[in-house]
Amino acid sequence: LHLKAVTLSAGTIQYKVRFSMSTYVSSAPQNNGQPVCLGISNSNLYIACTHGPLNTIKAGDPNGYDSLLFFKKETGTAYSTFESVKYPGWFITTAFDDWKRVEMYQVPTDRTANFTLEDQQVILS
């Protein structure tokens, strides 16, 4: 499975994906941003940064969960970036053209690493 970016219009609204962003709470100073996990709503799918295939993550695996964590950092009044916790310097990016994969890249790149977050809701559990 691969996530692809598309500019939504009336004919492509069925491709809209909502993410649930879970905050990782830590007592350590958050100089790099807020650690978050990005899951695709109503599924068991998550965004991960890996070098190679990621098949499953098992409970108690010390090397698995950190590939699911990203530092969310606000880069202006409306934009955020998502940097891999496991691989510093690698960011979630999208191409400027539709139907290209959402991929991890080092910045600067000819892709965008700045995202706006819309329809945000805080859910406490």
Rank of each mutant, 00 (worst) to 15 (best):
T81P: 11
C37P: 00
L45V: 05
T75A: 10
G33T: 03
T56G: 09
Q30D: 12
Y79R: 11
Y87F: 13
S26Y: 00
P35A: 09
M21S: 08
L3M: 10
V102E: 04
F70S: 02
N63I: 03
S84H: 06
T12D: 09
Y79D: 15
D119P: 01
F115Y: 09
Y15N: 14
D66T: 14
L38S: 05
K86S: 08
T50I: 01
L3C: 10
N114D: 14
L69P: 03
I13V: 15
F96K: 10
R111S: 14
I57G: 04
F115N: 05
Y46I: 03
L3H: 02
I40Y: 03
A78E: 13
H51A: 06
N32V: 10
K4C: 14
Q120M: 15
N44I: 02
L1T: 13
V17H: 02
F19T: 01
G76F: 06
M104L: 13
S9P: 00
G11I: 03
K73I: 02
E118K: 10
D110W: 04
V17F: 02
G39L: 11
K73D: 11
V107D: 14
V17E: 09
W99C: 05
L8K: 03
N31D: 14
S125H: 08
N32F: 12
S41W: 00
F71Y: 15
P29V: 03
P88M: 02
L45D: 08
K4A: 07
K86M: 09
S67D: 09
Y24H: 07
I47S: 02
Q30Y: 03
T116K: 13
K100Y: 08
Y87A: 04
S67P: 04
V6Q: 06
Y105F: 08
D98V: 05
P53Q: 10
S84N: 07
N63G: 09
N44A: 07
Q14L: 07
K73T: 10
N63A: 10
L69H: 06
L68Q: 00
S67F: 01
T77I: 04
F96C: 01
T93H: 05
